[in-house]
């Protein structure tokens, strides 16, 4: 470890302050230039790899989804659809009520399912249960309710929008 490269051994004599000043300046300049290179390479690569999440952000900006012919959905059944980039469900309850909720479990993000027989929303991953009318978390690990959307039933379609 004590051995030195010959070039460094030669430069040990250069102890004048002017030389150290120039050397320090060159060192800093080389460091700054190196950082510029790293930045110039890293920035486009980061943006390139991150493109899909930006696209998803664009999709998430959606405020309204129109589901054609969804007004024909029979009672006691569910229609799964994409609201922006995440799954959502439109439930036509047996009492005629239309309810739309996000289908992403608030626990760890699994997609939940509507069970008409049990009249509940169930997450198979960890057994979370939600109320199918309000989206409230009833039992199991989910910490928060499922977010509800506003539903407008038209003559030829159903429009779901952010509440």
């Amino acid at each position: 470890m004590t051995e030195q490269f010959p070039i460094e051994a030669n430069e040990v004599h250069e102890v004048e302050p002017v030389e150290t000043g120039r050397r320090a300046f060159l060192g800093v300049a080389a460091g700054v230039a190196g950082l510029c290179y790293v930045g110039a390479l890293a920035y486009p690569i980061y943006r390139y790899l991150d493109s899909p999440s930006e696209m998803a952000l664009g999709a998430a900006a959606v405020t309204e989804v129109t589901l054609k012919d969804a007004q024909k959905l029979p009672t006691g059944s569910v229609l799964m659809f994409k609201f922006g980039s995440s799954p959502a469900m439109l439930i036509h309850h047996t009492d005629g009520r239309w309810i739309s909720l996000t289908a992403v479990c608030t626990h760890l993000g699994c997609t939940v399912q509507y069970e008409p027989d049990a009249d509940r929303i169930h997450c198979a991953c960890h057994g979370g249960v939600y109320n199918p009318y309000t989206g409230a978390n009833v039992s199991g690990p989910p910490p928060k309710p499922l977010k509800a959307y506003k539903v407008t039933v038209g003559a030829a379609d159903v429009t779901v929008s952010r509440a």
Binding site: P44, I45, R47, Y48, D50, S51, E54, M55
Partner: peptide, 9 residues
């Protein structure tokens, strides 16, 4: 044409 800087890579 879609991915950022994809043309450059």
């Amino acid at each position: 044409f879609t991915m950022h800087f994809g043309w450059l890579i």
